[in-house]
Amino acid sequence: MPMNLHLLRTFLTVVEAQNFSRAAELLFVSQSAVSKAVRELEHQLDLPLLERGGAEGKALRGVALTEHGRAVFEHARAIFALERAASEDVRDRAELRQGRLRIGASTTVAAYWLPQAIAAFARRHPTLELELVVGNTDEISRALIDCRVDVGYVEGEVADARIAASLWRTEALRLISAGDGVAARSKRMAASALAEQTWLLREPGSGTRQAAQAWFDAQGIVPARAIEIGSNEAIARAAAAGAGIALLPETVVADLVAIGRLRTIALLGDANAATRPLYRLELVNRPQAPALRAFLALDADSTAPRARQSKPGT
């Protein structure tokens, strides 16, 4: 049968206080209410819990337990110890002394946009566990829906009614090809010429792939040949080696452009000012935990790309 926890707590207090009147003081009730509660618990359990050699709280010196009473007392002590532990754990989490924050991010965001915020959060809350899950936009969206991450930062659009997506940042994209060792040099090409090139592309489901496809559609470009590579950094290195051309975030290619390993390409009559939005993802109607609220506050001040920003030549 279900056990009444209020009656059980009263019984535990009587045994620990070894006196009915003292238990009443601790519980802020009358002694008669304490006596009634213990008798009612015995009635509900159909077991005698106390040895009664006199009037409760008066003639008895201390409280003598029956064999059944000792068993119930041990159970009660374990139950309410667990309750205290749970209360302390919840309080520590609310006060950011304990807990875990799981952040999901697509590869470029994880590598270039989040490190400063993560470092600042770790310094401010050293007792909290922190995990960064990295994947493409689709993978991070699924992790959020499955509650494997608390918040997501992605490069691509997400169309799922369970997810609230808000604009977080906007980053520049650059068309790049192998450089000639001369920093900040660029060239111009017609869209028709670009279509004939070998393109280095991310896998489907990647935000960078989405951005590239949207740019192709806007320019009327259908690549003659494409090589699929699952990392923006790997694409940048492959482009520097002459494997093809690519449309990548400026944060990824800035250093290689600066030293002449890559050069930017501008369309004839175009300033090469392609951009893409970055999104923060949260589950609809899921309350923000204290750790997440603290991270979002830091994120507003601390997030900046890691790579040096360099302006491509004209």
Rank of each mutant, 00 (worst) to 15 (best):
D217V: 07
A300F: 09
V34Y: 04
A240Y: 00
S35P: 08
L248E: 09
L41G: 04
G242M: 10
E131W: 04
A110V: 06
D217G: 06
A165Q: 11
G54D: 05
R280T: 05
E74W: 00
D160R: 05
A224W: 02
G179D: 05
A289T: 13
E196Q: 10
F121K: 08
V38K: 01
V182E: 14
H125E: 10
E42A: 11
T13N: 00
R308P: 03
E40K: 15
G313C: 04
Q219H: 10
V154M: 04
S177H: 02
I118L: 15
L49Q: 09
R261W: 01
R84M: 12
A161W: 15
E282P: 01
R52I: 13
L200Q: 07
G62Y: 04
A172L: 13
R39K: 07
L278I: 03
F80Q: 08
D301I: 07
A183I: 04
A81R: 10
A76M: 12
T251D: 04
L278F: 03
E25N: 08
Q210H: 08
V257F: 00
A110D: 07
A193M: 11
E233Q: 11
K187E: 15
A212F: 05
Y279C: 00
R61Y: 10
R22P: 01
D255S: 10
T137A: 05
V222D: 08
R91T: 15
M189V: 07
A120K: 15
A165H: 13
E67T: 14
T314D: 00
P115L: 14
I176P: 02
T10V: 12
L281H: 03
R280A: 12
L114S: 12
R185F: 04
I227T: 02
V284G: 02
E155I: 02
A238I: 03
G54T: 01
L5V: 10
R225K: 15
S141D: 00
G53C: 02
Y112M: 01
L82T: 08
R169Q: 13
L27C: 06
A273E: 13
G260V: 01
A165D: 06
I245T: 03
K36E: 06
A119C: 07
D150V: 13
R123P: 08
L262P: 09
E282S: 15
R286E: 11
L60R: 14
H6L: 09
S310I: 15
W215E: 12
R97A: 10
G135A: 08
T10S: 06
P249W: 06
T303I: 07
G207W: 00
R263L: 00
T10L: 06
A195T: 07
R276V: 04
F28E: 11
G135F: 06
L268W: 11
Q210E: 15
Q210M: 09
A304Y: 12
A172I: 02
A300Y: 08
D180K: 07
V158M: 09
S206F: 01
A81T: 11
R276F: 04
H125L: 10
V38N: 05
G205E: 02
E131Q: 14
G62A: 04
A246C: 07
S231N: 10
G62P: 06
N272P: 00
R162I: 11
Q116V: 13
S310N: 14
L268M: 14
D217K: 05
R174S: 00
N19E: 02
E250N: 02
E56W: 03
L8W: 02
H68A: 15
E74M: 12
